[in-house]
Nucleic acid binder design. Sequence first.
DNA 1: CAATTTGCCGTGCGCGTGCACGGGAACCGT
DNA 2: ACGGTTCCCGTGCACGCGCACGGCAAATTG
Lengths: 359, 359
Amino acid sequence: MEKEKGKITLKDVARMAGVSRGTVDRVLHNRGDVSKRSYDNVMRVIKDIGYEPNIYASILAHDQNRSVVLLLPSYHTGEYWEMAARGAEQAKAYARTFNVSIETVLYDQYDIDSFREACIQLLGISPAAVVLAPVFRNETAVLTAVLRERGIPYSYVDTKLEEDGYLTFYGMPMYKSGYLCAELLFDSISSVPESADQMKVAIIRIERDKNRKSDPTVTRREGFFDYMTEHYPNVEIRSVFINPRDPGSIIETLSSFFESNPGITHVAMFNSRVHLIAPALETLRAGDMPRAVGFDNLDDNLAALRRGSIRYLITQHTDEQTRLAINSLVDYLVLNKEPERRDNYMHMDILSRNNVDDY
Amino acid sequence: MEKEKGKITLKDVARMAGVSRGTVDRVLHNRGDVSKRSYDNVMRVIKDIGYEPNIYASILAHDQNRSVVLLLPSYHTGEYWEMAARGAEQAKAYARTFNVSIETVLYDQYDIDSFREACIQLLGISPAAVVLAPVFRNETAVLTAVLRERGIPYSYVDTKLEEDGYLTFYGMPMYKSGYLCAELLFDSISSVPESADQMKVAIIRIERDKNRKSDPTVTRREGFFDYMTEHYPNVEIRSVFINPRDPGSIIETLSSFFESNPGITHVAMFNSRVHLIAPALETLRAGDMPRAVGFDNLDDNLAALRRGSIRYLITQHTDEQTRLAINSLVDYLVLNKEPERRDNYMHMDILSRNNVDDY
DNA sequence: CAATTTGCCGTGCGCGTGCACGGGAACCGT
DNA sequence: ACGGTTCCCGTGCACGCGCACGGCAAATTG
């Protein structure tokens, strides 16, 4: 289906359209100084013979080094956003193939001013494209407005804003993920529903700062509760809040929680930090471990999974998200390739003790 | 970490080594006519300054069209090997970036002569690289010997032969997949082991032709049985054979099986064809569906999963396997990039009704 | 010693595109 | 009629590399 022999070049187009290479070039890149007549001629020929520019020659001649900037919350090793950064690392290999480099700009996700500074820094780089996670919604809207104005394409990862200026979005179906979480928790007794009376669920949540950040896990929680009301309306559900900034306090919090709420058989956590409660479960409930399900393949989570203190992890391929987002932008920039889909919901992986190894 | 400004070119290397571009070129491509002195000089400079050729210029100048051939059993839509072919489709996009095209050569997996013919056809194409699944072990060994002799790199997918001439292998950890299969089947009652007495497992197998083909699922079966003896040594396990060539017979076979083996609560199947027994389960066991687990994300399997007649599917990303295998070969051919790992065991995905949608 | 071969090596051209430069024609105003 | 714009357009060089061609010196041969 490809006839590689008689490759059609720009020169051929020029000849067939009765103009020079320069004119074809001007048409291809919309840089004016072309009469309507010539323009139409060239366009017709291009369409007729299906001309496609040779990207090697193009890149070779261009020889410019564009950069795609990834705008992320800063992270320590083992934290959620590190995975996103890891994805960028993988994308680099692909991007460098096309002479585009990946820069990462970080900000403190608890400090809105640092986000604003990061935006300024980002614009200073004058990137060819941007990948970002809209942690601060309003400020992100400001940034993307500037990007649109400057004609810089951008993609969302993790979450998106409800506008339509972005090129692509890669994220997780949050509602479904909560639903799935509940299923994995309670699948164990679906064949013996009468035992549902003996179950009690604990939902571990994070004490949140009062800031303007968005909390994507609310949707996940909805999915979870909908599953519960549909399948196990009588199961007791309790919530407890822990403070991730003070790891020492967690075991105390949970200890008193378990005392005042005896008979907890299931534990769910809707963000990436199940690993924080794993040690507490192991010491407080060594005898009768509740069945625990959490999210995201952080190293600490995987370790807890292997130890058996977490039963299942649902992962959203955070690294893949950034990788694909970057790739879509690179394809768009270099190959003029429109993405297949704008909104891309990633597949959720279910991880158990027995399939983590080759992850 | 990249200094893109002063890109090092072949000319720079030539200058620094005190030779001409031609000589450097001869060194790079091992085509002789270079004195030992010059050779050493050039090699030293290359290593010192970390010269890397510009592949765009290289491809542009070279302008040759190589092809990678994928050697697979022929398939009908919805069958296992179709997924492998699908992966090739995805790899095409990447490959064409480098002026390499992907050809597929098919053979009848039940006819060894057709395989031999396919090999001849393959060699006729004089491919730059080959991806293959060693269905016929001995004949595959013959083929790979020829490939090695001709210096054509090749990669295995799905299964591999025990030799070390291949560039990469992408497959599934078969033993673990069987183990995982058992866990997913019986996880439901792990907290109430006393009910294990009431369980009965059926293993559905395929009547095999008597040919020299390899059966990779034996290892999977081992993993399954090991899990069972470790965790539920007293559970009854029965096997039943169905004939995939005669779909009409399946329901009869299973009907009489269920009659003579009442109380089957769990069903496992170790190849990609669970979809064959799903309708039978739905009609024969509508009231008390046994819990069924199978393998591979064939469309029919996914449909059965959605209908609820299969509880879990374990998938091995067959499409990814071929995609990655092809990519590894392309990288090796074009970029001279050695693969990171030779043997690559893919992650197993667990698919349930609630996470198939975004697959 | 002349003629030829062999071992090494440098140079020039072409791959297809981006872009700067300059130039011709038409149009304007004086 | 003439200088000055404006609008279009063609050409030449550069990008980095592969490869063919030819050349020079040393080694070999008759």
